[in-house]
Simulated assay, not measured.
Amino acid sequence: MSRSRSAFFSLALVFIFLTALPCTLAAAEKSYTLAIVPNLPAVTLHKNWTPIAEYLSRELGVKVQLKLYDKITTFLEETKAGNADFMYAAPNMFYLAYQKQKYIPLVRGSNMLRGQVFVRKDSPFTKVKDLEGKTIAIVGPKNVCSVITRHALLSGQNIDFNVSYGGSTINVAKSVLVGKADAGATLDSSMMEDAPEMQREFRVLMQTDKIAPHPFSAHPRIPKQVRDAVTTALLNLDKSEQGRKMLETAKLAKPVKADYKRDYSFFADVNFDRLDRQQPK
């Protein structure tokens, strides 16, 4: 009788263990997706962001899985649908996702962004109003430099103009240099980084107000405890040389806590529909 009772309890323990095992495995396999805006080739973004994804995975005790895209339109569709748990996006793209999903900005870099409109030094155009009806080269329709400079021109300066897409800062600069476009619009920091030698060939006609850079944000379904842990982990990276290099590579240098109202509510005044209706010449 004693042996039977012992065997019964042993079998019961085995049954309880096997029943609980799937739950344990499910908890161990918990993962979050991190969507990265495709502003560089996917292979470059994978190299730049893998160290941060692995670091966050260790800090959170869960898997943080990179989600990369080959098109900005796909990235926007995914984030506006709320398919990403975490997201790193240009300010204007973050705002579009915020409108639909109320993503919460957690951390951003300290280097502010500012757009500029420039012409060749020998250009006859001396003020922004001279660009009425002219062609301005921009990187692309969704890039933050394009959005903030066109918004400033259309609303602040109240001029109409044509656009042409260069695809990159250096191509925009070349278009202006060879006369394919009357003016160009880029971020001032991008020009310094990508085409420093060309800067001496241009005159800046207008600069926009500075805006906060790309935020690292979280979908509101992510528990606050997890969001706070991610914020702390990213801020802590700035405390070591290796961590600072990781942040600089991912364009999150000198991270600070982000705030929607302070940093990104500016985009509520941007007429995105009007910008979308602008077709390249």
Score class of each variant (00 low, 15 high):
Glu132Gln: 15
Met191Cys: 08
Leu66Asp: 03
Ala212Asp: 00
Lys67Asp: 01
Ala26Gly: 03
Gly179Lys: 12
Ile104Asp: 02
Trp49Val: 10
Leu177Ala: 15
Leu13Tyr: 05
Ala84Glu: 05
Phe75Asn: 06
Thr44Val: 13
Glu132Met: 13
Gly179Asn: 07
Val119Ser: 01
Ala84Thr: 02
Gly82Asp: 05
Met1Pro: 09
Val172Arg: 05
Asn158Ser: 13
Ala183Tyr: 00
Val107Ala: 13
Lys102Ser: 13
Cys23Leu: 13
Lys180Gly: 08
Thr149Glu: 04
Gly184Pro: 06
Ala218Asn: 09
Ala53Asp: 02
Lys281Ile: 05
Leu66Pro: 01
Gln99Ile: 01
Val117Gln: 07
Leu45Thr: 00
Ile52Met: 10
Leu60Ile: 14
Phe267Trp: 08
Ile52Gly: 05
Gln116Thr: 02
Asn158Gly: 02
Ala218His: 12
Phe202Ser: 13
Glu77Thr: 04
Phe15Trp: 04
Leu76Asp: 09
Gly82Arg: 10
Glu77Tyr: 11
Gly167Pro: 03
Leu68Asn: 05
Ile16Arg: 10
Ala35His: 14
Phe9Ile: 09
Gly133Ser: 06
Ser190Pro: 04
Pro91Gln: 07
Asn158Thr: 01
Asp122Gln: 11
Asp209Ala: 10
Pro280Cys: 12
Val117Thr: 00
Asn162Gln: 15
Lys102Pro: 06
Asn83Tyr: 08
Val176Asp: 07
Thr74Glu: 14
Val147Gln: 03
Gln99Tyr: 00
Arg262Phe: 08
Ala97Trp: 00
Arg262Val: 06
Ser2Pro: 01
Cys23Gly: 07
Gly243Gln: 11
Leu275Gly: 02
Gln99Asn: 02
Pro22Asn: 09
Ala253Gly: 12
Ser110Asp: 00
Ile148Lys: 05
Asn111Pro: 00
Val37Asp: 10
Asn171Ser: 12
Val147Ile: 13
Asp70Ile: 03
Ala233Cys: 04
Phe161Leu: 09
Phe118Leu: 06
Ile16Leu: 14
Met1Ile: 07
Ala233Gly: 03
Met93Ser: 09
Glu197His: 09
Glu197Ala: 14
Gly184Phe: 06
Gln101Phe: 05
Lys224Glu: 11
Ile72Thr: 09
Ala42Val: 11
Ala97Ser: 10
Ser146Leu: 09
Tyr69Val: 02
Gly133Thr: 01
Glu241Gln: 08
Glu132Gly: 04
Asp228Val: 12
Lys261Ser: 15
Glu193Trp: 06
Tyr88Arg: 12
Arg274Ala: 13
Gly167Tyr: 14
Leu60Trp: 15
Tyr98Cys: 04
Arg221Val: 01
Arg227Pro: 05
Val172Ile: 04
Pro51Arg: 12
Ala233Glu: 00
Lys239Phe: 02
Glu132Tyr: 03
Asp182Lys: 07
His46Lys: 11
Lys142Thr: 04
Ser10Ile: 07
Met192Pro: 00
Val37Ser: 10
Tyr264Thr: 01
Ile52Asp: 11
Ala84Pro: 03
Asn83Val: 02
Thr19Glu: 15
Asp188Glu: 14
Thr149Asp: 01
Asn111Tyr: 10
Gln278Arg: 06
Asn236Val: 08
Gly115Ser: 11
Arg262Ala: 14
Asp273Trp: 06
Arg227Glu: 15
Glu132Pro: 03
Ser57Cys: 12
Thr126Asp: 05
Phe272Lys: 09
Leu66Arg: 10
Lys210Thr: 00
Ala27Glu: 09
Phe266Asn: 08
Gly243Asp: 11
Lys47Glu: 08
Pro280Asp: 15
Ser110Arg: 06
Gly167Arg: 09
